[in-house]
Design a binder for these strands. Structure first.
Length: 380
DNA sequence: GATCCACGGGAATACACGGATG
DNA sequence: CATCCGTGTATTCCCGTGGATC
């Protein structure tokens, strides 16, 4: 009896659980509560927010830095912790042991990608601040603004709002965001976060991660999400160097490699998986957060597009008809979506040399986002 | 009845190319 | 040769409509 062979057979046939411990720890779109690194930026942010600790509203702040530098990770984690400590509704029960004026702030973190219109921005904030149901339709933007202004100015706790991902293709501009809160600025201050510098009372910059910091991040995520020892040190190094400081890309590639490994029923992440996954993450591409916050039908169109075979992909037209056949959308609408997605940088139009037909040359669509990770996360 | 917003559809414009014209 | 023109296709732009909700 060959025990080794039996163990091996068992090892090979045992599914998923041998590899992944916690998917959410691996997800490039989920931020951890204690991000690795970024200590000095955290200090600068806390400096800018210092008035809070004297029970005063901080100035409007703008934080900017390159993609994948940990802006969102830092700000969302910071707001969550501030909320625990300085909000009346959270953390320790309000008792007389606390000073009367302590804890008088609400902290709201908004992703401008999901709140991409003025209406949705007001709505998200109002929803976070009140227990009442906030309408999604049937009420005008102005009405929501007045409601929000009333809530903010007439209630005790002042409000600090972080608006992440401003100044993107499809999101509100930082200046616009500031103006939206003009009439409540006595009781509300804003932290905008984006890639580009912008005007605010106080601005802070953040630099891309070093390879070393990135390796730490990958290691940390892998230790939370994967069975111990699955990701080798050299693989971490490969990923970190390849990603050139962009944590999003590194995590998207890792996540992709894990999905490939799981689909192949492997209990290891072979270098080949890693390689394929990295190739499925375009450099300077569009982050998953943008793609995943698109309206449902557009996401479906993208998912279908990824499934098309070579012939169907040869032009926008053929792709659109193939997708429309598979959906309840019209060809015209799918075509428009595809062009809009290309305009937004999510797809890229590359010139196709279709010499058979006369007229203007068609173009082929190539995804500009991490495709493996998208496929897995789009299922939800 | 009001409101937001996703869809549909189609008009307007841009482009490629070959052939005609100056 | 340089430019214009016609035809066929690709791409952009715009706005009305309707579902869902209040």
């Amino acid at each position: 009896m060959d025990i080794g062979a039996r163990i091996e057979r068992r090892r090979v046939t045992t599914p998923v659980s041998t590899l992944v411990v916690e998917w959410s720890a691996l997800s490039p779109v989920i931020h951890v509560s204690n991000p690795v690194g970024r200590g000095s930026t955290l200090e600068q942010l806390l400096d800018a927010l210092d008035p809070l600790f004297d029970d005063r509203l901080p100035p409007n702040i703008h934080l900017h830095g390159p993609p994948g530098a940990g802006k969102s990770a830092l700000v969302s984690a910071l707001f969550s912790h501030l909320s625990d400590r300085l909000s009346p509704m959270h953390g320790t029960i309000q008792t007389t042991t606390r000073g009367g004026n302590e804890g008088n702030f609400h902290f709201v973190y908004i992703d401008a990608r999901r709140s991409s219109t003025v209406f949705r921005l007001y709505r998200s904030i109002l929803d976070a601040l009140t227990d009442e149901h906030v309408p999604e339709r049937g009420v005008g933007t102005g009405v929501l603004r007045q409601k929000l202004a009333a809530t903010v100015t007439h209630s005790d706790p002042d409000v600090v709002v972080a608006v992440d991902h401003v100044d993107e293709n499809e999101t509100l501009a930082s200046g616009e965001v500031l103006e939206l809160f003009d009439e409540m600025s006595e009781s509300l201050s804003v932290l905008t976060v984006g890639r580009e510098p912008a005007t605010a009372d106080r601005t802070l910059g953040i630099a891309a991660y070093s390879t070393h910091e990135l390796a730490d991040i990958i290691t940390e995520r892998a230790s939370q999400g994967l069975q111990q020892g699955v990701l080798e040190h050299t693989q971490v190094k490969t990923l970190a160097e390849w990603a050139e400081g962009d944590a999003h890309d590194a995590l998207a590639a890792l996540f992709g490699a894990v999905t490939v490994a799981v689909q192949s029923d492997s209990n290891r992440i072979h270098d080949q998986y890693l390689k394929t996954a990295m190739e499925a993450v375009p450099r300077d591409g569009v982050p998953l957060g943008i793609v995943l916050s698109l309206p449902k039908n557009r996401r479906c169109v993208l998912a279908k597009l990824l499934e098309l075979d070579g012939g169907e992909r040869s032009s926008v037209e053929t792709s659109a008809t193939a997708i429309a056949d598979d959906t309840n959308l019209s060809t015209g609408t799918v075509t428009r979506y595809l062009y809009e997605l290309a305009e937004a940088g999510i797809l890229e139009r590359v010139a196709a040399t279709n010499s058979e037909r006369s007229g203007r040359h068609p173009s082929k669509l190539e995804p500009r986002f991490p495709t493996f990770a998208f496929r897995a996360l789009h299922e939800e």
